[in-house]
């Protein structure tokens, strides 16, 4: 089993032939199977191990991995839609997220992608991802504004 630890600098590492290697974690299925199949790679992108589940790891390693996976899975979650305005070639969204209020833009013919029942993903012009976890659970006004784009 691969050894995973944080070195004194706080970097995710493993040890190979007594040498410390900084680890990069790449989820194989970041959307469809969030809770498994992680490729552990070195700095050059060479796969050192394929982890099918963090559950198989010892407690200490699991905690380190869970922390890293939370960081890797971070996306901006839309709690409330304040405004959607259409402009020449652009659609402006003003939304409230757990990180704060954010304005972003999409192309007019880019639509929120349906990821599951009530679950939508919007990618803005800069590549930032905004998730609507459950459309039905949103407030009435947000639903009214969003409805043409997701219903």
């Amino acid at each position: 089993m691969i050894e995973i630890y944080k070195n004194e600098l706080g970097l995710l590492c493993t040890r190979k032939q007594n040498a410390e290697i900084i680890l990069e974690v790449r989820p194989c299925f970041p959307w469809s199977r969030k809770h498994g199949f992680y490729s552990l790679r070195d700095e050059k992108g060479v796969e050192l191990a394929l982890l099918s589940s963090v559950e198989t790891l010892p407690q200490a390693m699991r905690e380190i991995m869970v922390e890293r996976l939370e960081q890797l899975g971070f996306t901006l979650k839309i709690l409330q839609v304040l405004k959607i305005v259409e402009d020449i070639e652009l659609r402006h969204f003003e939304v409230r997220t757990p990180c704060g209020v954010r304005i972003f833009q999409t192309m007019l013919d880019d639509w929120p992608k349906k990821m599951g029942q009530g679950h939508f993903l919007i990618t803005d012009l800069h590549g930032d991802l905004y998730q609507i976890a459950d459309f039905e659970e949103m407030d009435k006004e947000s639903k009214r504004i969003l409805e043409p784009y997701v219903a």
């Binding site: 970097l11 960081q71 899975g73 971070f74 901006l76 991802l129």
Partner: peptide, 12 residues
Amino acid sequence: LEVKSLGLTTLQ
């Protein structure tokens, strides 16, 4: 060093 995530990037 770069750590790529779905919605953010970390540079060390």
